[in-house]
Simulated scan of single mutants.
Amino acid sequence: MVYETGNRTVDDAVARVLGGEQLDRTDGLALIAQPVEDLAPAADYVRSQFGDDTVDACSIVNAKAGDCAEDCGFCAQSVHFDSGIETYGFLDPEEILQAARRAERDGAQRFGIVVAEKGVSKEQRPDEWDEVLRAIRLVRDETDVEVDASLGILTEEEAAILAEEGINHYNHNIETSPDFFPEIVDTHAFEDRVETLEVAKSAGMDLCAGVILGMGESPTDRVDAAIALQDIGVSSLPVNILNPVAGTPLGEKFGDSPPITTEEIIQTIAVYRLLHPESRVRLTGGREVNLDADEQHLPFEAGADGILTGDYLTTSGQSPGDDIEAMERAGMEPNMDANEFDKDAVKSRADAGERADVETAAGTATSNAEPGDD
């Protein structure tokens, strides 16, 4: 079957992707200049040919909050900025297990243990490393969710241990393009992030690595980030949209209005699908504040097939029931490969307003910010 929009650039790209060809930077730059009304349905068609019409949900816990030595300009957890968040050391593994059980109840297929620091070090903080491993084992052995981790930089030894313990995906976002990265972070280089991803991949873990849109980057930067992720090889591509947090450099620069439109968000997601036809393109932080309530389904109509559901690291998300309704509005269903759950019960809890009274998966750190990405 030939897919046709009447847009030669888009139609040619779709035909080549369906023929097994990987699109390159030149293609990406041409595509991101095309009208969203042509891009979105084309990307959705490609997604339908490679996927199964389900949305894979993951959830996270902020296992150690604040006091990070890095200076990422978007991050409320950096010690360099006064964002007003609550800080704490590594959580008791039993608390992490409880968060995983909430994620399991809410329909997550995978659960990420996240530590916001340069790296959990087996050599420098052996007691903390042991607690990380205990938390992984508890979630692995006592829930149906797959265990992911985001623990900063890794040595080869640490990566091998995590893979042996059953970590499914290792998350380490590249944040933006190589050229724009120095505008956002001074304390480490883009290449440092790539190196960690390569170490994790070599150890046998799948990679979850993506971007934050709306930090002042250009459309070219958005394409270049996707091309860098092609070179790395990711199976999950999280797309955050900046939710500027007061006290951070980007919060001070943009206030509560990131320089990105709904059209640009949907356009970029569609291009990412065409550049990464076999990856999960995953909606993550900041979507609630950058897309109106009646727009939450649009990314799923533009090639997205993954979501981070529940709360984020320092800010609140919308209810998992609302997330399910957004996917269903787009004609998709929640994935249940790892964790079969009662989606009607999840939606009923949202309808009953339980979100205000019951923590979702993160629910472990507070911020003065509105729902968003960090």
Rank of each mutant, 00 (worst) to 15 (best):
K201E: 15
E183D: 14
E21R: 11
S279C: 07
D294E: 15
I85P: 07
T9R: 07
A103G: 15
Q267F: 00
A76G: 13
G20L: 15
D186H: 12
R16H: 04
G28W: 13
F341I: 04
P41T: 14
V245Q: 07
R25L: 08
V55M: 03
A33W: 15
G6E: 07
E128C: 05
H172E: 14
Q124W: 13
T268E: 06
G255M: 01
S279I: 04
A76H: 04
D337A: 13
S48F: 01
K347C: 14
R8L: 07
A293S: 15
D256E: 15
Q22H: 03
R355S: 13
E175R: 00
E340P: 12
Q230W: 14
I269G: 00
I269L: 03
F341M: 02
A116I: 00
I161D: 02
A203P: 11
R280F: 15
T26V: 10
H80D: 12
A99S: 15
I113K: 14
I60W: 10
S367A: 04
K118R: 15
E37L: 09
D357T: 13
P178L: 06
T284M: 01
L97C: 11
A163I: 00
A13W: 15
E198W: 06
G353H: 12
D374T: 15
T196P: 07
S121V: 00
L275T: 09
Q49L: 10
D141E: 10
G331M: 05
V245T: 13
T309Y: 04
P41W: 05
D224W: 13
K201R: 14
M1A: 14
R349Q: 11
H80Q: 14
T143G: 06
E263S: 09
G285Q: 00
D12E: 11
Q267N: 05
T26L: 14
I136V: 13
C68T: 01
T26Y: 14
G112S: 15
A189M: 11
D292I: 06
K122H: 10
A160N: 02
N339H: 08
A228T: 10
L313N: 08
P35E: 13
N240T: 13
A352I: 04
A338K: 08
S235C: 05
E142H: 07
D192G: 00
A116L: 12
D373K: 00
A135H: 05
D186Q: 07
L23N: 01
Q296A: 10
R222F: 02
A69D: 06
H188Q: 08
P126N: 05
C208K: 11
R222T: 08
A42N: 02
F190R: 03
D24C: 02
R105C: 00
T176P: 11
E191Q: 08
I167A: 03
K64F: 05
G247D: 12
Q124K: 14
T196S: 06
T248F: 01
C58T: 01
T220W: 15
V234A: 12
C75I: 03
I184M: 02
R273C: 00
L138I: 03
E370L: 03
R282W: 11
G353D: 09
T196W: 09
G251F: 00
D256Y: 00
T143H: 09
